[in-house]
């Protein structure tokens, strides 16, 4: 009844948002902070969101469970962390040699991607919205030169997810280690290489102090798409206007996080190369070619693992093929036209 609606409209909501990033983490960690600020302003304080960094309320990898259980109403994370719960979720974060941020946004919002993503989370009582992107990442920090496929054999590298599985099929010893040990392990030689994010975050992490070569491109993560997840029951309790405010604010940070990365990454890269004398290296073509082959296998296996996985893969693949064709004569052709010399770092 309208009376109930009125009562509901006057109610104030205080929500918790758990994230998988350290509090104030540059780039992706700014997304949830901005979300909280926007929502509070737009709702005139009727919906306030307290943002928790990883480990503050729950550990970073417990974000999904916490939102699913209703311990927190909101979460900010990336879907590949939930592989153990729903392997199909990996399609929505980063697919090796898959779509970049611009293409992912198109697929998710206009190509049926969001519907499929929500279908994956449905059994958990969780709603999802895409909430930011890293853009194309870097290939990683290496203390060994990679001049051919043979150089990968026995390389000790930290690389989680689908990319790591591809690398392990190329002879790399994939090592699992806590974030806190990455820097010292790379510095000491316990691992030869690690992937991280991109120049902006890598510079802050100080990886240039621990490694000699900075390889590109990040074929394993042509972008990572971040997610805002919402507990369904909590969302249902919000009046329609607050729901609209929340959705709009998430859409805002989705763009904002990527914009920030695009702006900051090139400044940081300049600092890395000019001030810290980091040696930029391009991953050799034959390595890329083999990685591409193995990626297809790994992704096909993931697709075959369930009926839903197959549908997601079909949708993803179809969209990527189409957009690739168009982008070949638009984005790619334009990049070539704008800068015919292309990559001059070799």
């Amino acid at each position: 009844s309208s009376f109930d609606n009125q009562a509901q409209a006057q109610e104030n909501f205080r929500w918790k948002m758990v994230t998988s990033w350290p509090k104030n983490f540059p780039g992706v960690g700014q997304g949830p902070e901005r979300l909280a600020q926007l929502v509070e302003e737009m709702s005139d304080g009727r919906l306030t969101i307290e943002v928790f960094g990883a480990g503050q309320l729950v550990p970073g990898f417990e974000v999904f469970d916490a939102v699913s259980d209703g311990t927190a109403e909101l979460g900010h994370s990336a879907s590949y962390y939930w592989k153990g719960k729903a392997p199909e979720a990996q399609f929505f974060a980063a697919v090796p040699f898959g779509m970049n941020a611009q293409e992912m946004n198109a697929w998710l919002h206009f190509g049926g991607g969001m519907e499929l993503w929500n279908e994956v989370y449905e059994p958990f009582g969780v709603d999802v919205m895409v909430a930011g992107a890293s853009g194309v990442q870097m290939g990683g920090w290496y203390n060994k030169e990679i001049n051919s496929i043979e150089d990968l054999d026995g390389l000790k590298m930290r690389m989680p997810g689908l990319g790591g599985e591809v690398m392990s099929r190329m002879g790399v010893a994939i090592v699992n280690m806590p974030g806190g040990e990455i820097f010292t392990s790379l510095q000491s030689g316990a691992i030869d290489a690690t992937e991280w994010i991109g120049p902006y975050n890598d510079l802050a992490f100080g990886l240039h102090q621990a490694a000699d070569y900075y390889y590109y491109p990040g074929w394993h993560e042509p972008t990572v798409m971040f997610e805002t997840i919402v507990n369904e029951e909590a969302l249902a309790e919000l009046p329609a206007d607050l729901q609209a405010i929340l959705t709009t604010a998430v859409r805002d940070i989705n763009a904002n996080v990527l914009d920030e990365y695009t702006a900051r990454n090139n400044d940081a890269l300049e600092t890395l190369v000019n001030e810290h004398e980091v040696e930029l290296r391009r991953i050799p073509d034959d390595v890329l070619a083999q990685a591409r082959e193995h990626s297809e296998d790994v992704i096909a296996e993931l697709a075959e693992s369930s009926e839903l996985g197959t549908r997601i893969y079909d949708s993803y693949r179809t969209f990527q093929d189409k957009v690739e064709n168009y982008h070949a004569i638009s984005e790619q052709a334009y990049y070539n036209a704008r800068n015919p010399d292309g990559d001059t770092t070799q």
Partner: peptide, 22 residues
């Protein structure tokens, strides 16, 4: 490191200096 970047951003320094584990 995150706190330091946050502090600088809040002061309007957009190419922040960094502090690393090293």
């Amino acid at each position: 490191s995150s706190a330091y970047q946050q502090a600088q951003l809040s002061m309007g320094i957009f190419s922040p200096k960094t502090v690393s584990v090293g």
